[in-house]
């Protein structure tokens, strides 16, 4: 107990929280990307305009962001590697596992199969966007309450799939829940509790 408090105190003293670390990482990555563009081989190889970085506007977790992206960059890559939104997980990168699920205009989609340029002008919601300040959002809270994970790797994707379902349908049946999270694999097999969590999340959102 004492040790834990001391540790907590230490974090406060240096003003260095995990969240702060991640967002500074994000900023760093953006800076790197911007400087990286100058040395990108695309221009050197004499490639025409479409190959160059394109400027796109995205509304990410309620914040409008202008980004320079290469045509081949997936939304997953941009969110994770350039914005530090590591709630978006890399799984199969072929649309089979659901770890990279994000909401695009409130609809769950795979970040790995969406080119960032194709998302231009869209409203993107990632796990980070479900936080209510420092508190967990209702779906996140429900996953904790119902112990809906073991290793936790698929959890952000599962939560986003449930979030998307509840935005479209606030009172889903068990069959609807099972169907709507069927695009998200859980290798630990926490499915039963994931279904319970989705049901609990619907309750929490209504209350």
């Amino acid at each position: 107990m004492e040790k834990k408090e001391k540790h907590k105190g230490c974090q406060c003293d240096c003003g260095f929280t995990r969240r702060g670390f991640l967002s500074s990482m994000g900023a760093g990555a953006v800076a790197l990307a911007a400087s990286g563009k100058i040395v990108t081989p695309a221009a050197a190889a004499g490639v025409k305009a479409p190959m160059d970085s394109l400027s796109i506007q995205l509304m990410i977790n309620g914040r409008s962001q202008r980004l320079l992206v290469e045509p081949r960059w997936s939304l997953l890559y941009v969110l994770r590697e350039h914005l530090g939104l590591t709630g978006v997980k890399i799984g199969c990168e072929r649309g089979e596992c659901g770890a990279c699920t994000v909401l695009i205009n409130d609809i769950p989609r795979y970040g790995c199969l969406t080119l960032a340029v194709e998302a231009e002008g869209s409203k993107i919601t990632t796990l980070e966007g479900l936080m209510q300040g420092e508190d967990l959002g209702p779906v996140q809270q429900a996953f904790v309450e119902k112990d809906a994970f073991q290793c936790g790797y698929c959890t952000p994707g599962q939560i986003m799939a449930v979030e998307g379902l509840l935005r479209a349908k606030p009172r889903p049946s068990v069959a609807e829940i099972q169907r709507e999270v069927s695009g998200n694999l859980c290798r630990c097999g926490a499915y039963v509790n994931i279904f319970k969590a989705a049901d609990r999340a619907a309750e929490l959102k209504r209350s």
């Binding site: 649309g95 659901g98 969406t114 169907r179």
Partner: peptide, 9 residues
Amino acid sequence: VASPQLRHQ
């Protein structure tokens, strides 16, 4: 067809 995410896209 496939999964919800793929059907949306």
